[in-house]
Structures are given as structure tokens and as C-alpha cells.
């Protein structure tokens, strides 16, 4: 495969990571917790889309909408039932709970849908755009990259320009002060989980459009990678999650194309460690010291 092809595949995979990482980073920013179940929401989204499209034979648009809807509700419910009661306890307890929720979702998926792999339909068709020579960009790749860019721009506008988005940033900085401004913390946290989970649903569909084998653990590895991407870019930062995701995807594809398929993941994490050694807050992470 040509260099350009690898690059495009890397950006495409990276876009999926970026969309997941955006959810990770937003939830982390507001709830100050690593929602390890985030990856499994991806899997649920992919299954929902699979059943609507392949099972019921409805249009992919409906499949995506259903996935987004179910995951949004699921995200809110998980937050309310599992995380909200733990707001005042140590973050370690919350982390363990998140890991529990992750296993719960995987096991529930296994019970409901068995661990037999499903083959995700080619919902974006098999064609592509011919770019001269032997270079063809598949539609699914274009959709994935396009979706990622649109989502990032939308999130930047939302958090930067809207009243609700600014309130969200205020909450992520200082919950008590935000409450004193009249901001409802609970609904802000719910909204964040809703947005993060909706993004996870979209990521699930895009991921499976590119890698169609769907099993109950489909979301784990991309979830961990996206978490890595979020840290890579600077956790809490939206452009950081985007950049981190894209870089991670490109490094992964290049490592497996030119170095070693087996070691691709190890190389990804090696690069992460080196970057964090040089810049502990991640690529775009920043820390403003408080003045007294």
C-alpha cells in the first residue's frame, strides 16, 4: 500500500479515536473521572446500529440515530445510577466503579447478543472517490474524517460561544464557584455524559464501518487507545483530544505498515510515554497557576 493510502487510513482511524477521545476528555473535564465504560458505549452503539440496519433492514440513517439515542440515554442512566452517588468519595472508588460498569456492559452484551461475531454492514457503501492513479478514498473514510472535523468544530463552538457551553467550562474549573453563579451542576454533568455517549455511538458506527467484526469487547481496545489519545493531546482539551486521536491513528497505521504489525500498539504507547516525559501535560494541555 502506498504512503498516501497509509496516511489516509491513519487519519481515518485517528478520527475514530479522536471522536471517542473527545467524549473521554469532556467527561474527564467535568466529572474529573476516567469513565472506563466509555469504550463499551461504543460497542453498544455499534450493536444498535447493526440490529436496526442488518436486523430490521432499515436505513443506516435510522441506525445511526437509534444508536445515538440509546447511547445518550445509557450514558445518562449510568451516570445517575453508578457515578452520581459517588461524587463525594475518593476517585479511586469511582475508577473501580467505572471498570465495573465496563465489565457489566460487556457481560450484558454477551448475554443479550452472544459472543458470536457479527459482521457489520457496509452502511456507507463499498465505493469511493477516485483521485487519479490507483488512489481511491472509500466513502466510509471520507464520512469518518468529515464527521470528526464537524464534531470537533461543533464542540469548540459550543464550549466557546454558547451560554451552556461556557457554563460547562465553568463547572470543569470550579464546581462550587459555578454553583454560586447559578449553574446546576447535576444537569451539566448529565449533559456532558449525554454528549460524550452520543459521540461514542457515532464512533462505534464509524469504527465498525471500517473494521466490521463486532463482538462484545469491540469497544475496549479503541476505548483505551482513545483515552491514551486524550492524555496525549492534554486531557480536558478539545483540540488536544482531536490532535491526539489523529496522531495516534497515524502512528498506529504507520507502525504496523512499516515496522511491525505485532508491535504497533507497543510503539503507540512508547511514543506516548516519550511525549509525556517531554511535556507532562500533553501536547495541548495547559496549566495556569493560581495567584494568591
Amino acid at each position: 500500500m502506498s504512503f498516501i493510502n497509509n496516511l489516509i487510513n491513519g487519519i481515518s482511524l485517528g478520527s475514530v479515536y479522536a471522536i471517542i477521545a473527545l467524549g473521554y476528555t469532556m467527561v474527564y473535564g467535568i466529572a474529573k473521572m476516567l469513565n472506563f465504560a466509555h469504550g463499551d458505549i461504543i460497542m453498544v452503539g455499534a450493536y444498535i446500529c447493526f440490529f436496526v440496519c442488518s436486523g430490521a433492514g432499515l436505513s443506516p440513517i435510522l441506525g445511526i440515530l437509534a444508536a445515538v439515542l440509546v447511547c445518550t440515554v445509557l450514558g445518562i442512566v449510568i451516570e445517575q445510577l453508578a457515578y452520581k452517588p459517588l461524587r463525594q468519595v475518593t476517585s479511586l472508588a469511582v475508577l473501580i466503579t467505572a471498570i465495573g460498569v465496563s465489565y457489566f456492559l460487556q457481560n450484558a452484551a454477551q448475554l443479550l447478543w452472544t459472543s458470536n461475531p457479527r459482521i457489520f454492514p457496509a452502511i456507507f457503501g463499498n465505493g469511493g472517490v477516485q483521485l487519479g492513479g490507483d488512489l481511491t478514498i472509500p466513502y466510509k473514510t471520507l464520512v469518518t474524517i468529515g464527521a470528526c472535523v464537524i464534531i470537533m468544530v461543533a464542540l469548540i463552538l459550543f464550549t466557546g460561544k454558547t451560554r451552556t457551553g461556557k457554563a460547562m467550562r465553568a463547572c470543569s474549573e470550579d464546581k462550587d464557584a459555578a454553583q454560586l453563579m447559578g449553574i446546576n451542576i447535576n444537569s451539566t454533568i448529565s449533559l456532558t455524559f449525554a454528549i460524550g455517549s452520543a459521540l461514542a455511538a457515532i464512533a462505534g458506527v464509524l469504527l465498525c464501518a471500517a473494521y466490521p467484526k463486532l463482538i462484545p469487547t469491540t469497544g475496549s481496545m479503541p476505548g483505551i487507545k482513545a483515552f491514551t489519545a486524550a492524555v496525549f493531546g492534554g486531557i480536558g482539551s478539545i483540540p488536544g483530544a482531536f490532535l491526539g486521536g489523529i496522531l495516534l491513528g497515524v502512528i498506529e497505521i504507520f507502525s504496523s505498515a512499516y515496522l511491525s504489525t505485532e508491535l504497533a500498539n507497543a510503539i503507540v504507547f512508547l511514543v506516548l510515554i516519550v511525549i509525556l516525559l517531554v511535556k507532562p501535560t500533553g501536547l495541548l494541555g495547559k496549566k495556569i497557576s493560581e495567584k494568591v
Partner: peptide, 18 residues
């Protein structure tokens, strides 16, 4: 307890959130 990463104007906007 101002919002350190937000601008001065955004901080004032948060003051008027209600």
C-alpha cells in the same frame, strides 16, 4: 474563585448566568 481559564468577559457572563 474566578474561572482562571476563562476570559474576564466570560467570567462576567457567568456572573449573569441566572
Amino acid at each position: 474563585r474566578i474561572f482562571l481559564q476563562m476570559t474576564v468577559l466570560e467570567n462576567l457572563e457567568m456572573g449573569a448566568f441566572c
